[in-house]
């Protein structure tokens, strides 16, 4: 066993075999220690990620479904509220119209009543007036008949009467 100097290019020797053995051992060790666990780990991780993705996708689908449902419900509720409001509007309109027409009718009736009352009163008054005329005439006649009055006096009495009647008539007319 001794050391010596040899040429770089010329000497192919047992290092060749030695290195092959070395490499085989290294290959075995690396495969056993690094590549197999690493590949297994990567596979596991890929599976994990795939399952996560799957669950995420399912969640997303569920969320989308929920959202669709919610919008559906919201739409329905909105529709309902719109209907309710419309109904209320229509009812209010109807009520107003009815109230208006009723009020109109009432007013007309009241007016009619008032007119009728006025008419009646006037008729009554006319009758009263006539009666008063008659009484006054009778009174005037009796006065004429009871007392001996001159034409002049008659004339005066008559004038007075007439004036009275006129006054009364005027008052009534007014």
């Amino acid at each position: 066993m001794n050391l010596e100097w040899g040429k770089v290019v010329k000497s192919l020797n047992w290092t060749f075999i030695f290195n092959l053995v070395n490499f085989a051992i290294l290959l075995y060790l690396l495969k056993r220690l690094l590549f197999k666990p690493a590949l297994a780990y990567l596979d596991r991780r890929r599976e994990l990620i795939a399952s996560r993705m799957e669950s995420a996708r399912a969640d997303e689908e569920k969320a989308a479904k929920l959202a669709a449902e919610r919008t559906e419900v919201l739409k329905k509720a909105y529709e309902q509220s719109r209907q309710i409001v419309e109904k209320a509007h229509a009812q209010a309109e109807e009520t107003i119209v009815a109230a208006k027409s009723e009020a109109k009718q009432d007013a007309e009736r009241i007016l009619d009543d008032a007119r009728m009352q006025i008419e009646q009163e006037r008729v009554q008054m006319k009758q009263e007036l006539r009666r008063a005329y008659a009484e006054i005439s009778v009174l005037g006649a009796s006065r004429v008949l009871k007392r001996e009055v001159k034409l002049k006096d008659h004339r005066r009495l008559l004038d007075e009467l007439l004036a009275e009647i006129d006054e009364e008539a005027l008052r009534i007319k007014q």
Partner: peptide, 11 residues
């Protein structure tokens, strides 16, 4: 020694 290398000679 640039173009040479140490060689272990085992017998």
């Amino acid at each position: 020694h640039l173009g040479e290398k140490l060689i272990l000679h085992v017998t």
